[in-house]
Design a protein around this nucleic acid. Structure first.
Lengths: 240, 240
DNA sequence: AGCGCTTTGTGCACCCGTTCACAAGCGGCG
DNA sequence: CGCCGCTTGTGAACGGGTGCACAAAGCGCT
């Protein structure tokens, strides 16, 4: 998303963004395979399990080196290690969750955090009535202490699970504390300096995208409950 | 995937997938503007509020018609209507949530559902102890009744919030009932016929992607002597 | 040891999406 | 009434990602 990232120190890190987004999927599948005692796997089988094409998978893996044996496949455990290393999962990341409402509550209890080197270091909320309560074995702290908490626990990833109006302010404070990665669950557009990475998870958007395709599918063929199908045909006047 | 379903993208009225993914963002911003009484807005201002480039925004909007007045901008209310229509939000969609654990609980209480024509029609869980309990004013039904519920309520979107091992089976049953859109929160790869749309929301993957970038940023600044210079001097001011 | 089967790794062509730059169009002002 | 400045809409160049097809490279069997 960076407009022009000028000088790239030709070291590792040249992994395409689309590949990075798929590596965690491979990692998860490989984890199950390793647990099942599978020693090696071919790109075809792994691709099928991960829901991608085999050529794409091979190209993805080729970006992090030539691990894999021709005629045999990939060593599962070794590949797990290499992908983990490429993703930076050999390090430990401390996460702070801001906003302990329904969603924050669910996130705090989410088992997926601990499994890959992520540790929920703090739960923070602005509501004084929640402060002191324990969720997932952790005490909720007040938003006023955010800076102190981030500093003490060396939080490197902030998870925003607040209502939308509070999101930008919380984000700004996180960034001011030196947090450079933010995962935003609030339905709001966050503006940050481009040294900071923001990823958003937005349920409402996902539903609306599904709605679009649902409408698309309904327009084509089977029984359509209401009328209102004419809007399908778009302005043919302009586009010749 | 299969080239045969190419009709879905790139036809008349065929809005590019990337554009569809951004339309909900525009819609949200426009909603706030409309509430604030703003009558018209320029592509530049709207793009800034949505966090995209203005050219991209104009091209996105151009895909759904030539709404907008040169020299003036876009009529906010009219644009809200047009985007809503393009996304299919003029229709009503009934959603079933399968799996009422921490996450399903949070989803059931999520206010964003009702706001855009989505209605949570059913909560379903496999745990008999949860059945009959009320969450968000709705009674939890047992998984055995899934087919009946989907049929009775004409559910068109299924939200899977089960543990990973149950996800594929639940998905298969949903598909068998005629559900053609699935939103998957379980950390599992779902395989469906290509008539069905699946979108996945995976917290663990998002964190791992952030970890990758975090590692990349830290690559030059940790304990490297002499190289303590921040990786990029392109510091942009936060929204002041 | 050699041969053939299997699978990786990759060069290449294609396609989607992004960005730039500008002509066309509309409202307001003199 | 005509000109001017502003904004939209879009043609065209550009870049990244995807899929195909194949050469290179191990392994096992004979």
């Amino acid at each position: 998303m960076s407009p022009s990232d000028g000088a790239r120190s030709g070291r590792r890190g040249g992994i395409p963004e689309a590949t990075v987004a798929r590596l965690p999927v491979y990692l998860r599948v490989l984890g199950s395979l390793a647990d099942g005692g599978v020693p090696t796997i071919s790109s075809d089988a792994l691709a099928a399990a991960a829901g991608v094409g085999s050529a794409k998978l091979r190209k993805d893996l080729s970006h992090l080196g030539s691990y894999g044996t021709r005629g045999v496949g990939y060593d599962v455990e070794y590949l797990v290690y290499q992908i983990s290393r490429a993703l930076g999962l050999t390090q430990h990341y401390r996460v702070a969750i801001i906003g302990v409402g329904n969603l924050g509550h669910a996130l705090a209890n989410y088992a997926g955090f601990a499994t890959r080197g992520f540790e929920v270091a703090a739960l923070i909320d602005a509501d004084a009535r929640l402060v002191g309560q324990r969720v997932a074995g952790m005490e909720i702290r007040h938003l006023d202490e955010l800076e102190q908490i981030v500093s003490d626990h060396e939080v490197s990833i902030g998870v925003i699970a607040t209502p939308a109006p509070a999101a930008q302010e919380v984000c700004d404070r996180l960034v001011a504390c030196g947090v450079t990665s933010v995962l935003n669950f609030a339905p709001a557009v966050l503006s940050v300096p481009d040294t900071v990475d923001v990823r958003k998870v937005d349920l409402s958007i996902e539903l609306q995208i599904l709605a679009f395709h649902e409408q698309r599918k309904a327009a084509g063929g089977t029984r359509t409950p209401g009328a209102a199908v004419p809007d399908d045909v778009r302005s043919a006047a302009v586009s010749a």
